[in-house]
Write a protein that binds this DNA or RNA. Structure first.
Lengths: 141, 141
DNA sequence: ATAGTTCCTGTAGCCGCTACAGGTTCAAGA
DNA sequence: TCTTGAACCTGTAGCGGCTACAGGAACTAT
């Protein structure tokens, strides 16, 4: 009940939006299983591969690392995952995302501030440069 | 008027908080100039190096890539930068940061949503997994 | 003089791809 | 059936921004 439809790597790539080279890379680093081959050695994928790769792509879009994805897939592959385990991974990841956001927000504030001090004129005395080099004074001064 | 105080790479590292290996890396990729050496070949830094490395560290903290930093330093080194040029680089960078933030916020929303659907119980039917694999149905089913 | 620390170069690894080169296999048309 | 040309194959190297060795030389303090 599995490989009614065979897909070439190119077709799989199109359906998932994942680059061909990336698909082969996923196989190399063991997030995608090695598929059966045609007599001539071409990879032949089925619906399960399609689902799995879709899973991987979405997870990547959500910012999960390949390691995290391996964990998730490990749970699923083992068939022994509990909802709690998966939720924990997700929430862990959410924490990282929140931290990234807050870091970036602080960063943007700083950029706005130093940018605002700058009139953008033609003078070589630039408050941005000054701010980046120590408290006061430019490098080549 | 330049090298009143000589610093070893270790001292420079301590003062700036930049890893020794990273300092040497910066030299290799031409963001730090090759410093003079002691008779035995040890690198000897002066106040200018200290300022420059501080500049680089801050810029990195603000998320500038080494290429952007090279641009900034190029302006400064050339002595021909205008405030407008620098402001433009900064604002460009700010745009990228804003985009990253908004991407991450959308991402977090999604994570919250799929996490909320999950009760975190012990059942193997997990809405998160379901959501990640296509619209419905798990991989190994 | 000697021990112990710091420094040196060079190389390889991390992540997540991407981009070749140089060859083989496949599908469709003549 | 033969031929073209697209799609595939493997293997290797590169990207950015570091980090981590190994194996040795140079400093500094006693």
């Amino acid at each position: 009940m599995s490989q009614q439809f065979d897909l070439t790597i190119g077709q799989l790539s199109q359906k998932t939006g994942v680059n061909i080279e990336t698909i082969r890379y996923y196989e190399r680093v063991n997030v995608m299983p090695p598929p059966p081959r045609s007599p001539g050695g071409h990879r032949l994928y089925d619906q399960n591969h399609l689902k799995r790769l879709t899973f991987i792509r979405r997870s990547r879009e959500l910012g999960f690392t390949l390691n995290e994805i391996r964990d998730l897939l490990g749970l699923v592959d083992g068939g022994i995952y509990t909802c709690g385990e998966v939720k924990e991974l997700t929430d862990q990841h959410r924490k990282i995302v929140r931290k990234k956001i807050s870091d970036l927000r602080r960063l943007e504030k700083t950029l706005v501030k130093i940018s605002a001090e700058c009139e953008g004129g033609a003078t070589p005395e630039c408050p941005i440069i000054d701010a980046l080099f120590s408290k006061r004074g430019a490098f080549s001064a």
